[in-house]
């Protein structure tokens, strides 16, 4: 499956089905991360159940230093 991840085309292996899988794949499951898919923000409770679809536009967001 191909998705748009943070603005880039990303091919995902078959075992990545849910958002939780995606975070695991990128080793982000223990990080502070916010997930937006096709402009909808996901709540943490949805990570396990939300299934990714072909061409989804996924944004993985976090906090960085700023004023």
């Amino acid at each position: 499956m191909n998705i748009q991840l943070n603005g880039k085309e990303q091919q995902l292996p078959k075992e990545v089905v849910t958002v939780e899988d995606l975070l695991h794949f990128f080793e982000l499951n223990n990080r502070i991360v916010i997930v937006e898919i096709n402009r909808d923000i996901l709540q943490k409770e949805q990570y396990q159940t939300h299934v990714l679809k072909e061409s989804d536009r996924v944004e993985l967001i976090h906090f960085v230093g700023g004023g």
Partner: peptide, 11 residues
């Protein structure tokens, strides 16, 4: 403390 909100540099 203030922070900015940005895309993760996952690549």
């Amino acid at each position: 403390l203030t922070f900015a909100v940005r895309r993760m540099n996952i690549f």
